[in-house]
Design a protein around this nucleic acid. Structure first.
Length: 458
DNA sequence: TGAAATGTTGGGGCG
DNA sequence: ACGCCCCAACATTTC
């Protein structure tokens, strides 16, 4: 008997861990451990997505003649325990590169015959390194090396049937509904991928930045929990690049780059696990960040007075997802305008994002803060007003998430504090009451940030 | 995957 | 006709 220990590979298609367990012969027990260490962390929407996805996976497993064993507790106890109960000789699992996962797996491997199989990304981190074996710390050369590696582009099919599941104790999955807008099934992930690559992708290079449109693939939660494999996504992108129309070819090229960014940050976390605790670049470790609790709370609640920032933050808390452009704008605002430690933002995002992934989230925050690999230069400071005008030209995104500004005329939608009082009255919102005045002046904040960072540089 | 400050150019109004 | 000024539009530099 073998265990297929499921962690963030909730799929039957293109699942190398499952395929290896099947190839081993002698039967497979699919198991998921509800890890108390992880479930303690506040991340309601993400957990709801996970539970719903598990429910869906369980029913797919049953259709194939198997089932799912669910345990709750510490994997260091539960996995060896189940291996003993089921007389399993091997435990197969998809390798996960976060420090927590790596330590957990090393500890489990001391007790059972654990076979870690690569499947989280397209290429395992050690495969994408420089000629001297050292990791890349700049994206462009990393992506060049990534693209140069052989990739056959043929994801594994789902197994036609599975060996029956022996009688084993299992607990019920927690009841949870997937967050609105993200039905949690492998089929849904496949449909989205196909739909995206046959439609939206041709306008992706421009539309992906438009916060008022749905121009992105919205696949992040599915990739996060492996309802869709990175290999399947990359294979489909490459197919569009080779066979699509000129527009969809270009779009797929840009989108593939986003997949590579994901893998770049996985590789960074693999090679430099300390980034979860401190700045990648030592020059920026001594910064004295602001401890202004009111500013932090205003940012978290979407009450900064800058409409695009607030729209993004409310979209996050209400839906568990935020448009990528808005992620950059809100992150820049926390770090550069409020001078609050990027780690506060990292934590808040992890708490609310359905797609929250330590590697990508940390990479994104350190990029914004200018403290990371291939980071934005410290003087790159987003102007929330200009960003709003450029990427939400009609103000539709702002109005959608800030109902109190619904009737503000277009010329003031990114700068409502400039509205004359009679216009405020006409729009049904008084600045300072129904919607806050800006909590900082962006021009002043920019000067403060430049001075602060300049002092810290080298 | 930035924005502001500064520099340059050229058309048009005007005496 | 000509020179001057203003300023929009674009380019380059700087943070």
């Amino acid at each position: 008997m073998n265990l297929w220990w499921i962690r963030r590979d909730l799929r039957l298609r293109d699942n190398p861990a499952l395929a290896s367990a099947l190839a081993q012969g002698g039967g497979v027990v699919p198991v998921f451990v509800l890890d108390d260490n992880l479930l303690q962390k506040p991340a309601q929407k993400r957990q709801a997505f996970l539970f719903a996805a598990l429910k869906s996976l369980e029913s797919e497993l049953k259709k194939k003649g198997s089932g799912l064993v669910v345990r709750r507790g510490d994997p260091l106890v539960e996995i060896p325990g189940l291996a003993a109960e089921s007389a399993a000789t091997h435990v197969f699992a998809e390798e996960d590169y976060s420090p927590y996962a790596a330590n957990r797996d090393a500890a489990v491997a001391r007790q059972v015959n654990l076979r870690l199989v690569h499947g989280l990304g397209v290429h395992p981190p050690p495969a994408v390194t420089r000629a001297d074996g050292k990791p890349y710390t700049v994206f462009t050369p990393f992506s060049r090396a990534w693209k140069a590696l052989p990739f056959n582009g043929h994801p594994l099919p789902a197994p036609a049937g599975l060996p029956p599941l022996p009688e084993l104790p299992s607990i019920d999955l927690p009841d949870a509904e997937a967050p609105a807008g993200f039905p949690a099934s492998e089929d849904e992930a496949g449909r989205r991928l196909e739909g995206f690559l046959s439609g939206l992708v041709s306008d992706y290079p421009d539309d992906r930045n438009r916060m008022d449109l749905e121009g992105t693939s919205a696949l992040s939660p599915y990739l996060r929990f492996g309802l869709l494999s990175a290999r399947s996504a990359a294979a489909a992108a490459l197919q569009a690049i080779h066979e699509g129309s000129p527009d969809s070819r270009k779009g797929a090229e840009v989108w593939l780059n986003e997949l590579i960014w994901r893998e770049f940050y996985q590789s960074i976390l693999y090679h430099f696990p300390y980034v979860l605790g401190t700045a990648f670049n030592p020059a920026f470790r001594g910064i004295r960040w602001s401890g202004d609790e009111q500013h932090l709370r205003a940012w978290q609640q979407g009450l900064t007075g800058y409409p695009v920032v607030d729209a993004g933050m409310r979209q996050l808390v209400q839906t568990g997802w935020m448009h990528n452009r808005a992620r950059m704008i809100t992150a820049s605002f926390l770090v550069k305008d409020l001078l609050i430690n990027w780690q506060e933002g990292e934590r808040w995002f992890m708490r609310h994002l359905v797609d929250g992934d330590p590697a990508a989230n940390n990479g994104g925050w350190q990029w914004t803060a200018g403290t990371g690999t291939d980071a934005a230069p410290y003087f790159r400071i987003f102007n929330p007003i200009l960003q709003g005008k450029k990427f939400d030209p009609l103000g539709a995104y702002v109005r959608r998430w800030l109902p109190e500004l619904a009737d503000v005329p277009g010329r003031y939608i990114q700068t409502p504090w400039e509205m004359p009082v009679d216009e405020q009255r006409a729009a049904g919102v008084m600045i300072g009451q129904g919607y806050p005045a800006p909590i900082v002046d962006h021009a002043e904040a920019r000067q403060r940030a430049l001075a602060m960072y300049k002092g810290k540089r080298e």
